[in-house]
Design a protein around this nucleic acid. Structure first.
Lengths: 260, 260
DNA sequence: CGATTTATTGAATCGACTCAATTGATGTGG
DNA sequence: CCACATCAATTGAGTCGATTCAATAAATCG
């Protein structure tokens, strides 16, 4: 078995927890699995300030990034400046597996807050697929869930009204944070600005503001400073026509439980 | 080596060609690779009429489907009937690899035209990953491209105007058909109704109609019956702010050329 | 051929946008 | 620790893109 780093500093320790906690929604990992993940997450760590790019459209993809702490987003931009956030990365999230087989990035990845990432190499994935079937399955699950999230965003932008769309996005983020163990009861940190929400929902900043006021007036959310509270998740879900099925948070892969 | 079916009927023969032609945009396949793909495509073939569901939201996913002929789409629907097409399947397209690790489908797959599909089993993918690295790479490439397409749709719905959006969608379809060898010069078959286009672009049917009239008036498309002609692809591309980079049609994987 | 689906047109309405100004927060340096 | 600068949030007013409703024309199919 691989050697384990003696200790991880607090932030990364939390982050590995977020990843493991998320993956364990799907498969139960063995101690050895956890060790491999912890090692991968402590090797080649980089830190970024808020509001900077980690990768730009056109760059050659080199590694897979694992978000250890902080929030980031994937975005695409048109020449005239129109910008669309196409996904958010929360702690424990990983960008596309195997991107390095592509020649260049078709989108950028930028930070929202300060962010710590671990760069995962091709070798890591080779090692996983050779000797850690449960992790491999869990990573496939993550890939499929990410694809499902992207489809749901398509649905969100295409069919939902402004307030449904906003409620839906808030639900999704809340669910994903909770999965990663980053909520406390009904509240969570929420560093997105209204401009970020505008870029993600395809609404104007002004309309985001008005939409949030609607949600607040209906007691669906409390959003102040950088903290979100959801007084009643059920009500927010139904107002956003939110069905969590696309997050596939079931323990289906538990037939792959580690039983050593 | 596996035994090859003596002969394939015309339609499937074309379809295998579409798949191989598409994958070869990325890696060059060996004769043995082609044989494996041809065998997989001729095993367990099913036919569907137009406008029927192949899979429904909530179903347990069993196989990966490969479209041999015809057009299909993935769609999601809200309780009140609002419907969003989240992707189109053209001949040679495959739905998500490894879906069978999920418990239930979060979307439906329905046909547009009559469709022939091949069901690909878990075993097939095990065989590929064990012994056909070029195919495995090509399938990863397809997965990554599909994810990129979904992101581009998010961009399309979130940021582009109605006519840009329509032009963009038509460009994408034309490019993808051309990649599969299904265009003839500037024209291709185009079985989508205006209602389909509405569901895919998030516009109303009426507005789709008016948007198409705009594009026609600007000589950007000729769309009659079930045939699309693009008089000048460059002009349609620029009117749709279409940048084909997200289709990753480069021969980057050619370092994986078969050279036996 | 009639029946049904698909495409087209007009008119009225509404949701979301732009522009522009103001208020409120956050943060930094003197 | 306050003053200023900057960034984020809020408000109002006018406009426009896209919608709905409803009716008609054209195409397709059995």
């Amino acid at each position: 078995m691989e050697s384990v780093p003696i200790r991880l500093i607090a932030a990364e320790m939390i982050a590995v927890t977020a990843l493991i906690r998320k993956l364990e929604q799907f498969v139960r990992l063995s101690p050895a699995d956890r060790v491999v993940l912890a090692r991968a997450s402590s090797d080649r760590v980089r830190k970024f300030g808020p509001r900077v790019d980690i990768t730009r459209e056109g760059d050659r993809p080199r590694d897979v990034h694992l978000i250890l702490s902080g929030w980031a987003c994937r975005y695409k931009q048109l020449d005239d400046g129109r910008r669309q956030v196409v996904s958010f990365f929360l702690p424990g999230d990983m960008c596309d597996l195997n991107v390095f087989i592509l020649k260049e990035m078709d989108h950028s990845i930028g930070t929202i807050t300060s962010v710590t990432i671990a760069d995962l190499s091709r070798d890591f994935f080779d090692e996983i697929s050779a000797g850690y079937p449960r992790i491999a399955t869990a990573l496939w699950w993550e890939t499929l869930v990410n694809a499902a999230i992207q489809r749901e965003w398509t649905m969100n932008l295409g069919q939902r009204t402004a307030s449904e769309r906003m409620a839906h996005l808030l639900c999704e983020i809340f669910f994903r944070l909770r999965l990663a163990g980053l909520t406390e009861g009904l509240t969570c940190e929420f560093p997105l600005t209204q401009a970020d929400l505008a870029d993600a929902t395809g609404l104007s900043k002004v309309h985001v503001n008005r939409t949030l006021q609607e949600l607040r007036a209906a007691d669906l959310v409390i959003l102040r400073g950088k903290v979100l509270t959801v007084p009643c998740l059920e009500r927010l879900m139904s107002s956003g026509l939110f069905n969590p099925n696309y997050l596939h948070m079931d323990r289906e892969g538990s037939q792959l439980d580690a039983n050593e």
